[in-house]
Design a protein around this nucleic acid. Structure first.
Lengths: 356, 356
DNA sequence: CTGTTAGCGCGTTCAC
DNA sequence: GTGAACGCGCTAACAG
C-alpha cells in the first residue's frame, strides 16, 4: 500500500516522529485553515464570534488532519469534558446497572465517562478519588463511597461531586439513594407476614460507623422493624464481607450454632447468593428450612432456578438522576440536593412460611 | 475549629480561591523547600541527581502542602502514570474478571487504571479509545475490541497497546487470548461424546468478519469439530446479540422451528443464560430435552441451581499477563508478542446424554 | 461583531 | 544543582 494523492487532503496526520506518531495540534489546524489558533479554538468549542465561512474552513482542516483535542492541554486552563465515576467493586452487578444509567446521560451531554476501580480499603478508595482529581475531571460520581464525610466535603470543595447509594444531607455535594431503612423494613415485614420470628441479618464488616453508609441504614431498618414487631429479643446481626465469600462465611456462622434462624435477610444479593451456595451444597432446603432474602435485585436473582426474594433499588434510575444532578452542578448550581427514592419489595421463591 | 500553628507545617493547602479550592503546585513545593522547581520535579519522579538532604526537604514540603501532581500538566511533556482499559460491556462478568487480574499488577507498578465503557457499536468503541488517547494515557489495554485491525495498528502507532481476548499476530501491538477454536471444539467433543449429533451454535451478530474476533473463532472451532465428527450436515449456527436478551431471542428461533436440536452451544455464558431462561419459563427440561453449554465460566454458572457447562478461559490470568505485557511495552519493547492460552472444559449439569 | 496577538497554566527537560 | 524554554489549548486584551 503506497501513499496516494489522498495524502494531501486525506486522513493522514502530521509526519510521524521516530517511534510513536504525532497527532495534529490546534496550531496545525489553524495553519492549514489559514487562521489564528484563537479562531480555531473558538470553532473547536463552538464559542461565539466566528463567521460561518471560517467555521467551515476550520472544521474541514480538523477532519483532514484527523484533529483531536489534547485533553491534558485542555485540563490546564479549561474543562476536560470528562466525568469520573468511582466504583468500589466492579464485580457487584448493582454498580454495573448504575453505570448503565449514567453513561448515556453524560454521552448525550458530550462528556466522556471514565471509571476508576476503588478497591476495598479506604486508602485505595481515596487514592482512586485523588487520581480522578489529578486528572482534572470536570465532576465526580462516587458510588457507595466508604470514606468519612469530612473527606467527601473536602473533595467536593475541589470539584462538583454527586454521591450515589449513600444518603444523608450534605453541605457541598449532592446525594441520591434509595431509602435503605425502608428497604430492609420491607423485607422484615414480608418475613414476619409469612410467620417468621427468628430473622437474622447479615451486614458488612467495616470499621467506619457513619450512619449514612447503606449497610448501616439497612441494619438500622432491620432492627427498627424487628422492634416494631415486638421481636427485639430475636435481633441477630452477623457481620461479614459483602461478597459471595462473605455470604458463605455467614452461613458457616449460622451452621456452627445450635439451631438455624428460620429466615436470613442479607444486606446485599451477592452475600445472599454466597449464603445460598453453602446451604445448597449442604442440602439445606430453601425456603423449606430457612428463608433467604437479599437486597439489590441483581440480574442473577431473577433467574428462575435462583428466584431470590430481594429489594429493588432502581439502580438504573439512580445512575440517570445522579448524572443529571452532576450536570446541574457542573453548570453552576451550588445548593446541595439530596434525593431519596422509595425501594420496592420483590418477593420470589427463596422466602416462604416457616415450617410448623 | 480555628487556624493553629499547625498551619505553618500542617496539611492545609494553599489559600482557597473563590469557588473551588486551589491545590498546591510543584512551584509551591519548591518555594517552601527553598529549591528550584526542577529539583522538586526530580524528587517527585525519583529521578537521578538530588542529594538526600534536598530530597527530604522537598518530600517534607510535599506532605505539608498535601501536594498532588497535576496529571494534565504531566501529560503535556512526560508520562501520566495512567493506563486505560477499554471494555465493551461492563455487564459481562468476564470483563470484570479480566479487570481484577489487571488492576493489582498496575497498582504494584505505580500506575493508575482508568476504565472507559466502549458501548456496543464500533463508533462508540472507537470514541472511547480516542478519548483515552486524548487523555494521554501511557498505554492501553483493549478487551475484545471490535474495530478493524487497521484501526488497532493505527492506535498502536500512537501509544503502547495490548489486546486481550482477541487473537492473531499483529505488527504493532501485543495480543493475549485463549484458543477460542480449541475451546468450542472442547464443547463439541464433550457433546458428541455424550451422544449428541444435532448440536447448534449461537454466535454474535456483527457486521465485521475479521477472523480474529473471538466469536468468529468459536464458530470456526464449532464448525471444524462438527466436520471432524462427520456432522457437517448438522451444522446449525444462529446469529444474535451477545447478551441475555440475545440468548432469549435465539431460544425463540429454535422454538419457532419444527424440532429442537438436542444440544446448543452458546458462544458466551450470558447468551446461554438467556436461552436457559426461555427454556425454564416454558418448562422445557434441561438437559433432559436439550443440553446447553456456554463459554466463559462466569460466576453465575457456578451456582448450584444453574450449574452451567462451559469453558474456562482464565480471565484473571489473561488480565494479569496483559498487564505484564503492557508494562514491558511501556518500558520500551517493540517486538510484538502474541500469547495463546489453552482453555479447559468445565462440564456441569446442563449437559447430558440425549434421550433415546 | 470578527479576528488576532500574547501570554497563561504546571510539570518536564535541557543547556549551563 | 539552577534558570528558562517547552508543550498545547484557552482566554484576556486588543485591532480591524
Amino acid at each position: 500500500m503506497h501513499v496516494s494523492e489522498q495524502a494531501e487532503t486525506g486522513a493522514d496526520p502530521v509526519p510521524d516522529l521516530p517511534g510513536l506518531a504525532r497527532r495534529a495540534t490546534l496550531r496545525d489546524v489553524a495553519r492549514r485553515a489559514g487562521v489564528s489558533t484563537a479562531a480555531a479554538s473558538k470553532v473547536l468549542r463552538g464559542a461565539y464570534g466566528v463567521s460561518p465561512g471560517m467555521r467551515e474552513r476550520v472544521q474541514e482542516a480538523m477532519t483532514a488532519l484527523s484533529y483531536r483535542p489534547n485533553t491534558s492541554a485542555r485540563g490546564m486552563r479549561g474543562k476536560t469534558f470528562t466525568v469520573g465515576v468511582v466504583i468500589s467493586d466492579v464485580q457487584n452487578q448493582f454498580y454495573d446497572q448504575v453505570l448503565s444509567g449514567l453513561t448515556p446521560v453524560f454521552g448525550a451531554a458530550d462528556h466522556k465517562v471514565l471509571i476508576a476501580p476503588a478497591g476495598t480499603t479506604m486508602e485505595s478508595e481515596l487514592a482512586a478519588v485523588e487520581g480522578m482529581v489529578d486528572h482534572r475531571m470536570d465532576g465526580l460520581v462516587l458510588v457507595t463511597p466508604l470514606v468519612p464525610r469530612a473527606e467527601l466535603e473536602r473533595i467536593a470543595a475541589i470539584l462538583p461531586v454527586v454521591v450515589v447509594a449513600r444518603g444523608g444531607a450534605a453541605e457541598g455535594y449532592d446525594t441520591i439513594t434509595t431509602d435503605d431503612e425502608a428497604g430492609s423494613a420491607l423485607i422484615v415485614d414480608h418475613l414476619v407476614g409469612l410467620g417468621h420470628r427468628d430473622i437474622a441479618h447479615i451486614t458488612l464488616g467495616w470499621s467506619g460507623d457513619d450512619p449514612t453508609l447503606p449497610f448501616r441504614a439497612r441494619a438500622r431498618g432491620y432492627e427498627a422493624a424487628m422492634r416494631r414487631h415486638g421481636l427485639e429479643d430475636r435481633i441477630d446481626i452477623v457481620t461479614t464481607a459483602w461478597s459471595h465469600q462473605g455470604g458463605f462465611d455467614a452461613a458457616e456462622v449460622f451452621l456452627s450454632r445450635p439451631g438455624l434462624p428460620t429466615a436470613v435477610h442479607a444486606g446485599a444479593d451477592v452475600a445472599a447468593l454466597g449464603l445460598l451456595s453453602d446451604f445448597w451444597a449442604r442440602g439445606i432446603d430453601v425456603p423449606g428450612v430457612v428463608s433467604v432474602a437479599g437486597y439489590d435485585n441483581s440480574p442473577i436473582g431473577m433467574l428462575a432456578p435462583i428466584s431470590l426474594t430481594t429489594v429493588e433499588q432502581g439502580a438504573g434510575e439512580l445512575g440517570m438522576r445522579a448524572a443529571d444532578l452532576l450536570l446541574e452542578r457542573m453548570a453552576g448550581r451550588t445548593e446541595p440536593r439530596s434525593v431519596l427514592l422509595a425501594p420496592t419489595l420483590v418477593p420470589r421463591s427463596t422466602t416462604a412460611a416457616p415450617r410448623a
